[in-house]
Amino acid sequence: MSTPSEPGLSAIVGERRQLINLAYRLLGSLVEAEDAVQETYARWYAMSPARQEAVASPGAWLTTVATRVCLDLLGSARVRRERYVGEWIPEPLPDRTESIGGPAGGSRAEPIDPADWVTLDESVNMAFLVILESMTPAERVAFILHDVFRYPFAEVAEMVGRTPAACRRLASSARRRVRAAQVPAAPATEQARVVGHFKQAWEARDIEALVGLLAPDATMTADGGGMVGAVLRPVRGSERIAQYLIHIADKAPGLTLLERTVNGRPGLVAQHTGVTATVAAFGLTGDRITRIWAIRNPAKLRPWTETGSG
């Protein structure tokens, strides 16, 4: 009796990767994206088999529900982030083709981490995600659905419960925000070269070299979430940032820096006594670092610490 339903079940489960990709871009948090997708599936399985059978396109239904769940979460997230300790930075994602560092080996019997399912492209680089944070929830949803996932405005309208014209206006407003805030990204090879030199200068505690790699008006933002030590306000200016980094290195002898891909772009992972303590993403203009986003909140570093052991 179960045979006829198996293809349908497979199709439903097969939507999970797409839903995680969508929800992460909408929310900037893998934890919240996972919760949103779980809620979406809970609503699907709460329906009777007859109601499920009546759904013409289960994939479209799941996408619509996930979008609406994310829209609700975005509204409540704004309130939560007003109470957040220090600065809130989107959750960083690793490239799972790279070793994060630490002992490896053995076989992974645990379920696939949702981080493995997020496609790393320009729509998840840290600079872009930070711009998305400046948008209203409605702008962000309309923009991501149309400009990133290429849904026609008629379908976007059905998902968010607005008219196509309203969704078009929202996406257009979001696009203006992106154009106003975005600077041309340095090629990945150039960014990797600069980040590599930055790593060497930090390890050598070479303050002059650090200042030379930073734009004069560079900004460093840290996110400790009140769970670990981190500056509560952005550090501005190349000299102040360099001095702060040297101070951190002096306070944490034995700090190990690893060059790793962060949200699809070259970045750094700092480990202390073998444990990932900080993931840093970088924004560059030309050959100078203009932005550093340092994520230290342990709750946001789960994909960076769940490595094989043994």
Rank of each mutant, 00 (worst) to 15 (best):
W61C: 14
T163V: 02
P4R: 11
K300I: 04
G101Y: 03
A188H: 07
F153V: 02
G264F: 01
A181P: 11
E82Y: 05
V228H: 04
I112Y: 01
L255F: 05
W44Y: 14
G229L: 07
L62N: 10
D35W: 06
L27R: 03
V183C: 03
F128Q: 14
D206R: 05
I289R: 00
E110Y: 05
L120E: 06
P266C: 04
W202D: 03
T189Y: 02
N21A: 09
R175F: 08
I89T: 14
A11I: 09
L93K: 03
L62K: 09
D72G: 08
C167Y: 13
R68C: 09
R240Y: 07
L257P: 01
L73T: 11
S172L: 15
G224D: 04
V211R: 15
R205E: 11
I292K: 03
Q271E: 14
P184K: 13
G286A: 04
T256S: 04
I131V: 15
H146N: 15
L26M: 09
T261Y: 00
P216H: 11
A54E: 14
E203A: 09
A281L: 02
V178T: 07
R291N: 11
V195R: 05
L255M: 14
T136V: 01
L258A: 12
V194F: 00
L284H: 11
C70Y: 11
D121V: 02
P7I: 09
E259I: 08
A36P: 10
V65A: 02
R302T: 12
R177D: 00
V31D: 12
W293D: 06
G286F: 12
A215E: 13
V85A: 12
T221K: 07
L62F: 04
L26F: 07
R302N: 02
V279S: 05
P4M: 07
Y84E: 04
R296M: 13
R193H: 08
T221C: 05
R17I: 05
R302Q: 14
D287A: 15
V231Y: 03
V275E: 12
D223W: 01
Q182F: 14
M126L: 04
D121S: 10
F128P: 00
A201D: 08
I289A: 02
V160N: 08
R43T: 09
V160A: 03
P303T: 01
F149D: 15
L30Q: 02
R176T: 14
V13N: 04
V275F: 01
T256R: 00
L284A: 10
A185F: 12
Q243A: 14
S172D: 12
P253N: 09
T261L: 01
V148A: 10
L255A: 14
A56L: 15
M135L: 13
L73K: 15
R140T: 01
D72A: 15
F128I: 09
F198E: 01
R291H: 14
R168I: 03
W117H: 06
V183F: 13
E82W: 10
D287V: 02
F153T: 00
T290D: 05
G8A: 15
A281F: 02
A77W: 08
A66N: 12
D206S: 02
E32L: 15
P184D: 01
G254I: 11
M47K: 13
M135R: 03
Q18E: 15
A270H: 08
V275I: 10
L22I: 06
T136F: 12
P49W: 12
P303D: 00
V262C: 08
D223S: 05
